[in-house]
Write a protein that binds this DNA or RNA. Structure first.
Lengths: 357, 357
DNA sequence: TACCTCGATGTTTACGCAAACATCGAGTGT
DNA sequence: ACACTCGATGTTTGCGTAAACATCGAGGTA
């Protein structure tokens, strides 16, 4: 059998009126040009808004476009221009509020600049998967990439970034290799600790995020540094995995320590768990123990009691990411260095002076 | 400081040597072909994995590809094939857990099928914005669209879907026009009410979501229907906007009604607010009042007390969306009808028999 | 009037890829 | 030995667009 078609069956004659699944070969400039009685180039000029087309002609062309339902083929444009007007976003998970909201801001601001976002999900945070994502990236139609993740892993992947594709990273210490945009974790943590010490607490306990997280590292470091600067003892760190469940375990542990009157928890979800643990152990918040979180998630104000926490401006992080990445695309010059977005402490009802303080 | 990369320092001699912002005119098949000493078509065959290339030749080509860092230009491929292998996702917001997780599942499953996701954010849920999104869609390089939203608005936008672009909708009643994939809201609500009645509560109060939401409508309808079927009184509905804050207000209201011993809240965030309101008013959960939520967000188990709630399988919703949309792309035949994803009740500690029951 | 300018529009070409078709040469059958 | 087959590879072509260049005609200038 002459294997002319993929399945050896009779190949359809493309001219016949079969609906051709998938192929939607739409209206092209040539079709519009024919109807309007002009050349395809004139249609192109109208379509791109170039000057040098007389009004009457322009009107004719626009009418023809409307009549045929013409829409420019972005693949052809991309081919011609050598750019896709697309930004890839590599991320591990959307389950964290921060990632979702950053992504949303990125998408919005990219859209404003005429760019669209392509999502490149990386199943699990392993080197393999990440390299796979970067490899796939090579075949993807993107002009630039924003990476949202914990970035020890980025090292090995460095080589894999296709040449000419610009990179911005969120939540990383890769500022020596890429442009990094991040919340000012250290300052946020300092505000939290400062607030608790100012209320009169002798020192502040800490429930940290996972060891691999740079955000967690920096929050913990700032907490420790601040206590040392003020000459306060630094209690042993409890460590969670960002989940409320892990916060609950840490909270049970802390509840057993009568000295503990103030806790800085590295995120709101774990803080929720801490609150429940303290509640379960009969320790009143804020009367017996004060708790400060980090993130200011939407629900923080509805916790029992409403949580004092460090507000992160994810929208601003997203905005800066897009700004930086498009700047690189425009100039063609890769950037390095870190851009910090400031935080602010939102004081609610989970903090108070220490008992008898 | 030399880092010899594209820093403005020694640029690779790409013709004139100017860094050409944006243009990254990479390695093409022709370049690979030249180096490997074969024709471009042979490179193409290797690149697409077509048979009919002898091993030695293939090796040569692959070596040349590696050496030059070749990666296929997806714009050219898209132009040639007439398809983009891209699915657009239109959504209003990622701030709801459900949307984020559905999106994540969509992205993952699309990736498995060799498709990528393009995000089309719609700022505000207004007809104008939505029409704008659909219009932009026309210029976008997508083969199909998944719409995640409340869909009264979809009516007007119907006409705007470009021909040949297939559509799947989440959370809608547009099943007569599009394929709709959704959680089985009604069944979830029935399970919640059933559970509370079985515990011995005389009837069940309801805190509903916003009037415009189809999910909210269906949950409320199922709640009402179930009570009527069982011959129970149907208390007046309290209505919130999905936020914990609105749940708190509804909760304060309910706390004032001593008859109220069981509440079905239309989502977990509002349930969080209800819990806090009951706590603030000194009504113990579940001793005095039982509360059931909807969604089973990650934190639900850490509420005070841990929340009994209806678990939604967002991952499955996303999977079914991709499945349906790709089926339409493959066959070229648009589908209608509704696909329901089942729910299950997760019983935790916020429900118990009524006081004195 | 002859010549030039300049604006409006048309024609050619290339972007990178892969289907369709062409070629070439080594084996196969008679 | 000759035609013939078939697999491996090369050549041509076109996808839709827009830059670069070509043309054409109206109006201005000497």
């Amino acid at each position: 059998m002459s294997r002319s078609g993929p399945d050896g069956a009779t190949q359809e004659p493309t001219g016949a009126g079969r609906p051709r699944a998938g192929r939607r070969r739409g209206v092209s400039m040539a079709d519009v040009a024919r109807l309007a009685g002009v050349s395809a180039q004139t249609v192109s000029r109208v379509s791109t808004g170039h000057p040098g087309v007389v009004d009457s002609t322009r009107e004719q062309v626009l009418a023809a476009m409307r009549q045929l339902g013409y829409r420019p083929n972005s693949a052809a444009r991309a081919l011609k221009y050598g750019e896709f007007r697309t930004i890839g976003v590599i991320l591990f998970t959307l389950s964290s509020t921060g990632n979702s909201r950053t992504l949303e801001a990125i998408a919005t601001h990219a859209a404003d600049a005429g760019y669209v976002i392509t999502l490149i999900p990386v199943g699990a945070p392993t080197q393999d998967r990440l390299l796979g994502a970067f490899t796939r990236l090579g075949e993807l139609a993107v002009d630039a990439v924003i990476v949202i993740m914990e970035v020890h892993l980025l090292d090995a992947a460095t080589v894999a970034v296709p040449p000419g594709v610009h990179v911005v990273v969120v939540d990383s210490d890769a500022g020596d290799r890429y442009r990094v945009v991040d919340t000012d974790q250290a300052d946020g943590a300092r505000q939290a600790v400062h607030h608790l010490l100012d209320l009169g607490h002798r020192t502040v306990w800490h429930v940290a995020g996972p060891r691999e997280s740079f955000a967690a590292q920096r929050r913990a470091l700032a907490w420790r540094t601040m206590l040392q600067e003020r000459g306060r003892p630094t209690p042993q760190v409890r460590r969670g995995d960002w989940s409320a469940e892990s916060g609950y375990r840490a909270g049970l542990d802390l509840a057993g320590d009568p000295d503990c009157t103030a806790v800085f928890v590295a995120n709101d979800q774990m803080a929720l768990g801490v609150l429940r643990a303290l509640h379960d152990r009969g320790r009143s918040v804020p009367r017996d123990v004060s708790v400060v979180g980090f993130d200011d998630i939407a629900d923080a104000g509805a916790f029992i009691p409403p949580l004092t926490t460090v507000h992160q401006d994810f929208a601003e992080v997203g905005r800066r990411c897009v700004e930086a990445v498009l700047r690189q695309v425009r100039t063609g010059v890769p950037e390095t260095g870190t851009t910090l977005v400031s935080t602010r402490l939102v004081v609610r009802e989970s903090t108070a002076p220490p008992p008898g303080g």
